[in-house]
Design a protein around this nucleic acid. Structure first.
Lengths: 207, 207
DNA sequence: TAATTGTTTGCAGTGACTGCAAGTTTGTCC
DNA sequence: GGACAAACTTGCAGTCACTGCAAACAATTA
């Protein structure tokens, strides 16, 4: 039987984090596209083949996404106070993840890294899509909406959008803290981004 | 000097579209990840090396994004009627692109293809990011907002989000036309996704 | 026709990634 | 402690994407 702290299990964790750390460090040093898997494996003192036993892609190792975040988010969603509105719940979730990342001291470094590299962004997107699916399902359930309903999906996606926009804007205007930008984004999403919206009024057949 | 209809120019266009068509056809037949560049090149009757003279990645050939779409969108943005609200403009733009894609008869096929393949989605995202940047800049100018302002960026990104959600939902509920889903999404974004949003009211230190 | 310029192609090489078939470790049972 | 099974690591051979270079080739221009 597998005991919690078996040697095997511990060694696996060690190898995994050694690889992840080496990957992140090297990516920060040399730029993510200049690092080869060979270097990462070497730095972690394992063979290249072993690297691929742990991570399907180079990018996975650099991101080394923490599955706990999604888990915590889903849990938060399930146990949200009765009166809390859906977007409010999402707001809390986002801020919690943010806090975790910050405590890592890796938010900005990793964030920049990700934004600077297409291939990293790619992997993040992929994970995000899957995350969003799960979050949407959970939120829909909580809201008691039918499967075809747009609102839960839109709220989850829009929250993600707010995050992306906040990070992006923070790059061009570093004086405003991310949380401020984020909150402003959420406010807009909540109350509406455009009170004058109305394509029906002037449909003059604009080619 | 280059005359409009030089032989050279025409041949290039031919090769380009031959490659793009072969890529799309094969991707639809065998699944996008089962197609090799070699097959595509062979089907278009050129060398593999030539393929890479035209497209930087396999995915680019399959997507064969039409740069005219972005161009038209930017133009529409610049020439929007004075009284038209920003999200309304985005609505028109999205519907125009949609119409173009539909007239291609490729919307659904290509759409499915894209959504089914991570690597395709990746390339689309990359293009989208760049597109969004340009659209945001144009919209911000039109709205007369300062560079750090969130609203233009959020409106553009949110419009993109609405599209993605619409496509996604259309997959699970094919009975609702994409345009309906899209419009509902835009309505929500315009008027607000959550009237009860308010993280400030019950900040009881949810850990 | 000859010179110029742009395009295609083959070739050699790097790097990501996979399957397979040994080795090596670790956990278990006696 | 030793034997056995399961899990982990590794090297190797191979495929595929993609790049740079230099030679061959075709279109354009003088």
């Amino acid at each position: 039987m597998h005991v919690e702290g078996g040697l095997r299990e511990r060694k696996k964790q060690q190898t995994r984090s050694a690889l992840a750390e080496a990957a992140l460090r090297l990516a920060l040093e040399k730029g993510p596209d200049q690092v080869t898997v060979e270097e990462i494996a070497e730095a972690a003192d394992v063979s290249v083949r072993t690297f691929f036993n742990y991570f399907p892609h180079k990018e996975h190792a650099i991101l080394a996404r923490n599955p706990e975040h999604l888990e915590a988010a889903l849990e938060r969603l399930r146990t949200a106070p009765a009166g809390e509105s859906p977007l409010t719940t999402m707001w809390f979730i986002v801020h919690e993840v943010l806090r975790d990342l910050e405590s890592d001291g890796q938010l900005s470094r990793r964030g920049e890294l990700i934004m600077s590299s297409p291939s990293l962004l790619y992997q993040l997107m992929l994970s995000s899509i899957d995350d969003e699916r799960q979050l949407t399902a959970a939120l829909r359930e909580r809201m008691g909406e039918p499967p075809g309903s747009i609102r839960p999906a839109l709220i989850v996606s829009a929250a993600g959008t707010a995050c992306r926009v906040a990070v992006e804007l923070h790059k061009t205007a570093p004086d405003r803290p991310i949380r401020d930008l984020l909150d402003e984004g959420f406010q807009l999403l909540a109350r509406g981004t455009d009170p004058d919206f109305g394509p029906d009024h002037h449909q003059k057949g604009h080619s």
